[in-house]
């Protein structure tokens, strides 16, 4: 009987009272199906990846991953309405293509407006690349102290100091940390930009090195050097990379 397309929505907020309000406001919108609720960033990444919602109500301040980090980790085409009590995030929210931005506490009226926009957006099926926009919006304000990697619906949090080195591989980067390696879809230059420049050096077109891991530098051929890490790994060093290393040591 219902031919009308159902919009599948996910509610992500760490406070149950906040989720409750959204549920209550959605009560008068039967066209929205609530897929579920998530109380933290990890769950949100998992649910979004597995359930593929059309619309996400996303809190910004959450345990584990904040709203922006969640978006940076998922590459889904969906509409996002940000919800927060902190209005200094507003500009950033629109940077990552949010449909709207609700400041707690909000009225049913204001909520309906945002929802209206989201529904229009969903029916227009505009393509949005959150993944890239959110990743780009992330490091702008400070040095990134951890790197997030998603494997399926699981998220790994790699504190920057655990990273040994990063290697470029086609469209991916391979992050070597604590004896494991992680693949991530990101450009090496992007990560280089985000990491602490006093600790991480781009020693080669294909490598970023954590200088704490370096054991020695050896001359390998004329004008060509290699770095030997404490675990014995050997990495090529370009001439400009060597200059940068010398500048830091």
């Amino acid at each position: 009987m219902t031919k009308k397309k159902v919009v599948r929505a996910l509610i992500v907020d760490d406070e149950s009272l906040s989720r409750q309000v959204i549920r209550e406001y959605l009560g008068s919108h039967p066209e929205i199906e609530i897929l579920g609720e998530c109380a933290n960033g990890f769950d949100a990444v998992k649910e979004i990846t597995e359930q593929n919602p059309d619309l996400v109500f996303l809190d910004i301040q959450m345990p584990k991953l904040n709203g922006f980090e969640v978006l940076a980790l998922v590459d889904k085409n969906m509409s996002v309405i940000f919800i927060t009590a902190f209005d200094h995030y507003a500009l950033k929210a629109f940077d990552v293509h949010a449909i709207d931005y609700l400041l707690k506490p909000f009225s049913q009226q204001r909520f309906d407006e945002a929802l209206e926009r989201a529904l229009r957006d969903i029916s227009a099926k505009k393509h949005r690349d959150f993944h890239v926009a959110a990743a780009a919006a992330q490091p702008a304000d400070r040095i990134q102290e951890r790197v997030l990697v998603r494997e399926g619906s699981q998220v790994h949090v790699l504190p920057a100091e655990t990273i040994d080195y990063v290697e470029a591989q086609d469209d991916y980067i391979r992050i070597q940390a604590g004896g494991k390696s992680f693949l991530k879809q990101q450009r090496l230059s992007e990560l280089e930009e985000a990491l602490d420049h006093k600790k991480f050096v781009r020693i080669h077109r294909s490598y970023i090195l954590n200088i704490d891991r370096m054991a020695k530098i050896e001359l390998y051929a004329k004008d060509s050097r290699i770095v030997i890490l404490k675990d014995g790994t050997k990495l090529n060093v370009s001439r400009s990379g060597y200059e940068k290393l010398r500048g830091l040591l």
Binding site: E15, L17, S18, Q20, V21, E24, A85, L103, K104, P105, F106
Partner: peptide, 10 residues
């Protein structure tokens, strides 16, 4: 603001 939001929800 968070407290007001809780009240609004309750």
């Amino acid at each position: 603001f968070n407290s007001l939001n809780s009240i609004s929800s309750l």
